[in-house]
Every structure is written in structure tokens, then in C-alpha cells.
Design a protein around this nucleic acid. Structure first.
Length: 634
RNA sequence: GCCAGCGUAGCUCAGUUGGCAGAGCAACUGAUUCGUAAUCAGUAGGUCAGGGGUUCGACUCCCCUCGCUGGCUCCA
């Protein structure tokens, strides 16, 4: 008996349909193009999925965010089909769509090579040309488990075991069947453009205790042009890679004979770093922080007392002096607590904010090292705030504001998240809850959006993390705010309250830029090496036309230098075109050209890196201009 | 740490089936005194990452170590 149902479309129009009916049939009447799936009462469904009840129906097109996700997920299935056909016996793990594409994890005894990717792509193209429909099949849990069991798909059976009882959906295209929630494209022929990008290892379920599988990454787009644009974008991004720019601009190097993950700053990189350090000291002093400096190594017993020895030992380096064991600091907090403890504190002294550009060494596993973004020795713009519980909220908000102010100066976009208690940690549940609540409360007060990252906190407390992206879109944690009730306890820190009794202060660990190395890495990529004047290691270069301007150029140079401007003079017997080209490639913000004409007028011709020839300026006009830019951090 | 790939002049990269180590740019020397992104000519530059093995013979094949790249795991 056909039942009548009422479907509300996106434009508000109502449609009465008699069952059986699916979204695909409704679309036929509407003459819509590029629709790949639908959204029924907010739930994504295939166009072929029967509509059981009345409800609202929206269509998902290939070029929407959701549509692209479905496209990529379906392409992952096509890749899996191609791989199982080309490499019989391959076991399938998981194959989701991700931010910029998709991947699929395979357990295959044969190692995939670059050439294999080409073969797989070719086979995928054939599957696409066959226009195989993606058919949804519903099975009960037991039958689904049996089906995959028979085929030796041990990863799929493991996944099924964790699903709730009831029916499970499988998708079939051609002879290939995969466990999947869906929805999918109507057929394989709907993939307009795709490319396989790379092969990588990945642990099953992301745990290093499990077997390592082979992951193939790829991406798919609604048109060949979009795919080409994406590939072009990646190429562009590689051009601003800080490792490449670091060498080209002579900022820093890593050298095999010095050791992996250890930065060697060349003069220009050291100058850039010094500029950041100077900026940091000023900004911290402005906000009521005090400077502190701790030693590079501290006795082992102190690291035992703090809990680092039990919880952070794998990341620490140790040494010994006359039979006494020492730990090389991986964090700066210990010395700051010792400063606090060095005398009796009153509630009137709080909050105390100790700031240190503290260099730490951590044993990072060899495989994770990555240019300046992940190193073994680095300097944090670290501070520890000791305050009363009442002051905590304001202090956290103050730090968040500090982060916002600084990121605005550099023009960074960032995301925030809160990380909660990890497995390996110290302190009572109650303290962890208090600390986590304090961070959330402060974040909510500022009205900022944030994600929650379960179990990713530091061993001594929960934290707010601020993440920045590199040129290729990978996220790196920079600023972090960590709330800690535990270390003050372990070190028996106290202050005398207004009531004359002893109380326990709370401690905030926090960094703003994070590690100078990592920050410089993302900074180089952010500006593509073309630093704003206030950061540029060389701000101005004077270029002479001929030897006749040598003396004049040197006078100009020394005058600029007296005004604190970082300047050099190119007095070589070379053509002006060459000098400009070289200065431009070195991304120097200003070139001052000195020829006979300029001497006669007692001027300089200013050429900006960005806007080219700006015409003649008197030296004072130019100094005014550049000083204003430096002052405004432009 | 794990999986895969890679390592040739300062840089970017060629190097055939195992048979004398190559180019461009940079550097250096000389000439050129020039007006807004490359003047011309010449010279020099190599433990083919390091170590071991196979071979008459290894940049090339095999093993180990170091380092790098892309991921995974872990982190600022």
C-alpha cells in the first residue's frame, strides 16, 4: 500500500510524494545539476536511499564542502578497489576523507613504490570510466562480520566488533565491497579529477604498539582546474618553506657534524632572533613581568621532586659532575620556583610573574625533527605566574590578551584548544578539575572559540594551546597556558594571607611565542622571507652607480647607522641592475640608490622591495619614513 | 622510535648495462665606471654523506652508521 509523505525542500516548497521514493527521483523533476547526495532531516544520505517519512530535504552538490568530502571519500573507495585488484591479498584498514583530500591504509606485504602509485592511478581511471554505481547494502552485524571474516579482512572485523548491534551498511562498486557509513557518489563516473600524492607509514589505529600499515594519500576535486590550482598552491608553498629560505637568506643551518635538531644561527638569523628577544623583553616588562635567569643544569634530586624524573625522563638529557648527577633542563619552571621560595612571600607580593628566555634541551625522537619547527635545543619565552586562587582568572585572561595582542602584530591566524588530563600525570583529580575549569572559564569570558583535546595536557596540569599553521597548512603549537596546582604543592610554596595564615599559591606556566625557533620557522613562512622592516635583519642597502659615489654612500650609511637603522652599502663595481636584483632576492625592504644626480641634489633615490622606485628623498625624509614604519612594526 | 624514499662542487641538478666525475649559478682573477631585477672573458673547485663488503674494476650492487624528506606515534 503506497504511503504519501510530504517533503520540504530547501526553498521551503512542499512536495507530496507516494512511496517508495528516494532523493534521486525527486531531483529528476527539479532539473538540478551536480547533485551527488542529499541531506534528509540533517542526515547525509545517498540519492538512492529510500525516504521513509516526511521531512526536510537538502541537496549536496559536488562543489560544496560536504560534496567534496563525499567525492574524496568515494575516491578513497575507488583507490581501495584498484589496490586490491592490483595487489591481491591486501587487507583494508580505514580510508577517510581529510581536510585536503583522502587516504586509505593498507596492509600489504609488498611495499608500494612511486611507480605503483602511477599504476594504481591508471587502474582507478579505468574504474571511473566504467561508471560503476555505488550500491548500499544493509546487513546485520553478524552477517557483516562473517562476510569480512571469510575474506580475511581482520581490520574490518575489528571495526565491526565495536559498532552497535543492528544493521550495518556496506557499499559495493563492481566486485569491490567495503564497510562504510556513506553516503557516496551515485557512481564512480562522478569523480572529475583526482591525484595520488604520497605513500607513508601509519600505525593501525594510530598506536605504535600496533602493526605499521602503508598509507596512500590522495586528493580529488570537482574539476581538473581546481586540482591543478591545488597542486600549484602546494608548489608555491614549498617555495616559502623556511628550510629553503633559511639557507637562501643565510639565516641558519643544521649541520650533520654538529648534531640533528641543533640550530646554528648565522649572523642574519641571530639578528632576527635578537630583534624578537628585544621585543619580548619590552612587552613583558610592560605587563608587569620580572626578568629571571636559571641555570642550564640542576641537580637530579630536584627533577625527582618536581616529578619530571618520573614523568618526563625519556625526554631529558643527564650529566654528572664529581659523582653528583644533574639533569639538563627541558623546562624552566624549577629555577622560578626556587626564586619564589628564596624568601617569605605575602599576599601583597602576588601575583609574581617571572619571565625568562630560557633555553631548554629535549630528547625528541629522530623521526620528528623538522627544520626549525621541531628541534632538540630551543629557547622558550617562558614565564611562571604565581598568584592567589582569587587572582587566577584575571591572570589567565591577561595572558590570553597578551597572546592576542602579539599575534595581531605579526598578523597570524590561530586556533585554540584546551588539553585535559593525560594518562601519565601527577596531582589530585580535584586539582585537575579546578585547573581545567579555571582555563575554560577564562576562555569563555573572552568569548573565543576553542576545541577540546582530551588527554593531551602536560603531566602537571591542563593547558590552553594556541596553534599556528606553516606554509603547507600543518599546525604547530606555539603559545600555551598551563594551569598548575601540583608543583606549588610539591615545592611547598606558600604565602602569608591577609588572615596571617599560610596559603598555597597557584602557578601558571605560559609561553607567548612558544619556542623562538619554532616561531621563527612559522614567521619565515608567514612572510615568505620578506620580513617587515622592523624585523628585517638588513633594513636598508645603499647602492652606488659608480665609484664616484663611494664617499657619499658611506656618509649616508653612517648617518643611517647612527639612527639605529640596520644598513649596508654595496660599493662594488657592478651595474645597478645587478645590485638591485641581488638586494631584491635577499628581500631587503629598502634600497637607496646613490648616483651623481643624488649627490648634486643631496638626496637618495628610494626603491622599495614591494613597490619599486619611489623617487628622490632627502635623507631626513627617508629616516622619518623608515623610523615610523619600524615604530609601527610594519 | 616506526614505515618509505633520498644524500654527486657553496647552491640547483645531470651522470647510460658496474669501465677516466659533468653543467648552470655562486666563488676567485682580469677587463668594464655603467641609472632601477643578471656586463664580458678566464681560473679554480669533488674522500660521489661516512664505514665495511662483492668485483679485475663501485657514484652505480649488498650491509651498517650518520643526516635529510614525507607520513605515523610523540611534542614548544
Amino acid at each position: 500500500m503506497a504511503k504519501e509523505i510530504s517533503i520540504t525542500l530547501e526553498d521551503g516548497k512542499q512536495k507530496t510524494c507516494s512511496q517508495p521514493i528516494n532523493a534521486g527521483e525527486i531531483i529528476k523533476d527539479l532539473n538540478l545539476k551536480k547533485v551527488v547526495a542529499a541531506c534528509f532531516d540533517g542526515q547525509p544520505v545517498d540519492l538512492t536511499c529510500p525516504l521513509e517519512n516526511s521531512g526536510t530535504l537538502a541537496f549536496i552538490t559536488l562543489d560544496s564542502v560536504q560534496g567534496r568530502e563525499i567525492l574524496r571519500h568515494s575516491t578513497a573507495h575507488i583507490m581501495a578497489q584498484a589496490v586490491t585488484e592490483l595487489f591481491p591479498g591486501t587487507k583494508l584498514a580505514i580510508g577517510p576523507a581529510i581536510e585536503e583530500g583522502f587516504y586509505y591504509d593498507f596492509d600489504c606485504p609488498q611495499r608500494f613504490s612511486e611507480e605503483d602509485l602511477i599504476r594504481i592511478e591508471k587502474r582507478m581511471q579505468e574504474i571511473i570510466e566504467q561508471k560503476l554505481p555505488f550500491a548500499r547494502k544493509m546487513l546485520d552485524k553478524k552477517s557483516a562480520w562473517d562476510f569480512f571474516r571469510q575474506n580475511g579482512e581482520i581490520y574490518k572485523t575489528e571495526l565491526i566488533e565495536e559498532l552497535q548491534d543492528g544493521t550495518i551498511s556496506l557499499y559495493q562498486q563492481g566486485d569491490f565491497i567495503d564497510l562504510c557509513r556513506g553516503p557516496h557518489l551515485p557512481a564512480t563516473g562522478w569523480v572529475p579529477a583526482f591525484k595520488l600524492l604520497s605513500i607513508a607509514g601509519a600505525y593501525w589505529r594510530g598506536s605504535e604498539k600496533n602493526k605499521m600499515l602503508q598509507r596512500i594519500y590522495g586528493t580529488a576535486f570537482a574539476s581538473a582546474k581546481e586540482l591543478a590550482d591545488y597542486l600549484h598552491k602546494i608548489e608555491e608553498a614549498q617555495r616559502r618553506d623556511h628550510r629553503k629560505l633559511g639557507r637562501e637568506l643565510d639565516l641558519f643551518s643544521f649541520q650533520e657534524e654538529a648534531g640533528a635538531g641543533l640550530v646554528i644561527y648565522h649572523p642574519k638569523g641571530a639578528l632576527l632572533r635578537a630583534t624578537l628577544e628585544e621585543f619580548e623583553r619590552k612587552e613583558h616588562l610592560k605587563r608587569g613581568y620580572q626578568l629571571a635567569v636559571g641555570p642550564q643544569i640542576l641537580k637530579l634530586d630536584l627533577w625527582k621532586k618536581s616529578g619530571h624524573y618520573d614523568n618526563y625522563r625519556e625526554n631529558m638529557y643527564f650529566t654528572e659532575i664529581e659523582g653528583e648527577k644533574y639533569g639538563i633542563k627541558p623546562m624552566n619552571c624549577l629555577a622560578h620556583m626556587l626564586i619564589y621560595k628564596s624568601r617569605l612571600r605575602s599576599y601583597r607580593d602576588l601575583p609574581l610573574r617571572y619571565f625568562e628566555l630560557g633555553t631548554v634541551y629535549r630528547h625528541e625522537k629522530s623521526g620528528v625533527l623538522h627544520g626549525l619547527l621541531r628541534v632538540r635545543g630551543f629557547t622558550q619565552d617562558d614565564a611562571h605566574i604565581l598568584c592567589t586562587p582569587d587572582q587566577l582568572n584575571d591572570e589567565i585572561k591577561g595572558v590570553i590578551k597578551f597572546v592576542q595582542d602579539v599575534m595581531a602584530i605579526f598578523g597570524f591566524d590561530y586556533t585554540m584548544e584546551i588539553s585535559t588530563r593525560p594518562e601519565k600525570s601527577i596531582g589530585s583529580d580535584q586539582d585537575w578539575e579546578r585547573a581545567t575549569n579555571a582555563l575554560m572559564l577564562a576562555l569563555r569570558d573572552t568569548g573565543l572559540a576553542f576545541a577540546i583535546n582530551e588527554g593531551d595536557g602536560a603531566f602537571y596540569g591542563p593547558k590552553i594551546d594556541v596553534k599556528l599553521k606553516d606554509a603547507l597548512g600543518r599546525s604547530w603549537q606555539c603559545a600555551t597556558i598551563q594551569c598548575d596546582f601540583t608543583l606549588p604543592e610539591r615545592f611547598d610554596l606558600k604565602y602569608i594571607g591577609a588572615d596571617g595564615a599560610e596559603h598555597r599559591p597557584v602557578m601558571l606556566h605560559r609561553v607567548i611565542l612558544g619556542a623562538l625557533e619554532r616561531f621563527m620557522g612559522v614567521l619565515i613562512e608567514h612572510y615568505a622571507g620578506a620580513f617587515p622592516v622592523w624585523l628585517a635583519p638588513e633594513q636598508v642597502r645603499i647602492l652606488t652607480i659608480t665609484d664616484a659615489q663611494k664617499d657619499y654612500a658611506q656618509v649616508v650609511e653612517s648617518q643611517l647607522r647612527e639612527h639605529g637603522i640596520r644598513v649596508s652599502a654595496d660599493l662594488r663595481q657592478e651595474k645597478i641592475g645587478l645590485k638591485i636584483r641581488e638586494a631584491q632576492l635577499e628581500k631587503i625592504p629598502y634600497m637607496l640608490i646613490a648616483g651623481n644626480k643624488e649627490i648634486a641634489e643631496q638626496k637618495v633615490s628610494v626603491r622599495s622591495r614591494k613597490d619599486g622606485d619611489l623617487g628622490g628623498f632627502s635623507l631626513y625624509q627617508f629616516i622619518d619614513r623608515i623610523k615610523q614604519e619600524i615604530e609601527g612594526k610594519k
